[in-house]
Amino acid sequence: MIELAWLWSPFTLIGAAGQVARNAMQRGLTGPLGTVGATHIRFLFGFPFSLLFLAGVLFVTGDAWPSLSQAFWPWLVLGALMQIAGTALMLAAMTERSFVVTTAYIKTEPIQAAAFGFAFLGDHLTIVKVVAIVIATFGVIVTALRPGGSKSFADLRPTLLGLAAAAAAAAAFALSAVGFRGAILNVHGVSFVTSASFTLVCGLLLQTVLLTSYLIARDREVLRAIMRLWKPSLFAGFMGAFASQFWYLAFALTAVANVRTLALVEVLLAQGVAYYSFKQPLSLREFVGIVLIVIGVALLVAT
């Protein structure tokens, strides 16, 4: 494990690239499938690929079936539920704001963790951390608010909804990452690769069952729409499972904070996707805001 610990860095970079691609595909499917339907495809179509990943890992490593501690399941449930919530909130935010700006909002995830720790656990915040939070928060404001025009609630509504949804998504993803790392660390008797792969299979299975059951009970037409769009959904599911596989490998090797800090490269990747795929050029104001967010988050985690 010690010799392989450095691998968390390339694992994170690969996972970040895969996640940007998956987010772009899901965003394009939000219109025909709705937020819940677009959220579901990453789980429903990702699960079969996770099984293939696990089978390949078991074959290559020669690991036996893993043993689990009792803490595995609570951590897994926390991670799975928060990931569902975070994905849905992220897609909702993308309908109100641009792809790259939403990704930048969600990268305030470490700020959410610091705020929750201070509010609920009394965690001490140094002056440097407070400054970091102020810088990143100012970056969010600069990025979100449109200059000029009417300041009525109707005009501000998209900004406020997008900001609220993305902030909530950041909190959900922070809890999700902690939950999945906790689950991975409670898989015993196997290599870290098998621990990560097994956790991915269990998480996607739980999420698939939960969302499929919900749609059967509440909106079967969405399930039918998903089946009609199975080709793009299948690729989105593959990219989701691919990205998650590498996220989990990184979580197995290092702390969540390290992974999420390096994952800030998603902001740059998202900017490229937004420009070339969605024809969403980044204004100077948005660029300055995103730079401030990245500086603030990086300073927060580094201190």
Rank of each mutant, 00 (worst) to 15 (best):
I127N: 10
L145V: 11
V131T: 13
F153M: 06
V131I: 13
A167I: 12
I127R: 12
A174T: 04
A104W: 05
R181V: 15
A104N: 11
V187T: 13
Q112M: 07
G182T: 15
A172L: 14
A174V: 00
K151L: 11
A164F: 04
L121H: 01
G148Y: 02
F153S: 12
P110W: 03
E109L: 05
H188E: 14
I133M: 15
H188S: 13
P147Q: 14
V140M: 14
A132G: 00
G122T: 06
A170M: 04
I111V: 09
T102Y: 14
R146Y: 06
T102F: 14
A164K: 04
G179Q: 05
G179N: 08
A171E: 05
I133L: 15
V178K: 11
R146P: 13
G189M: 14
A154W: 11
S152I: 02
A119I: 06
A144R: 04
V142D: 14
A164P: 00
A154T: 12
Q112T: 03
I127Y: 08
T159W: 01
A169V: 09
R157A: 10
P110Y: 00
G182L: 14
L161A: 05
A115Q: 07
A113P: 00
I127C: 10
L175Q: 04
L185H: 10
A174P: 03
A183Y: 09
A166D: 04
G182K: 01
P110Q: 01
F120V: 00
V142Q: 15
I111G: 01
A177D: 12
L163Q: 05
V128M: 13
L163M: 12
A170T: 05
A168M: 04
L163R: 01
S152W: 09
V130M: 12
L145R: 13
L160N: 08
I106R: 01
V178C: 08
A164R: 04
F118S: 07
G179S: 15
R146G: 13
T102L: 15
G117C: 05
F173Y: 15
S176C: 13
T102G: 14
E109N: 07
A165V: 02
V130K: 03
K129G: 09
A115F: 14
F138A: 09
A144M: 07
T126V: 11
R181N: 05
G139N: 08
V178W: 04
L156Y: 03
A172R: 05
G189T: 05
V134H: 03
A172S: 09
V178F: 00
A144Q: 01
A171G: 15
F118A: 02
A183M: 02
I135R: 05
V140D: 13
T126A: 02
G179I: 15
A119V: 07
L160H: 04
S176E: 13
G182Q: 08
R146H: 11
G139L: 06
S150R: 15
I111H: 00
G162R: 00
L121S: 09
A171R: 06
F118V: 08
F180K: 05
G122H: 03
T102A: 10
P110K: 01
A170Y: 02
K129W: 08
T159R: 10
V187H: 13
S150N: 13
G182V: 10
V142M: 15
D123I: 08
A132T: 05
T108I: 06
L160F: 08
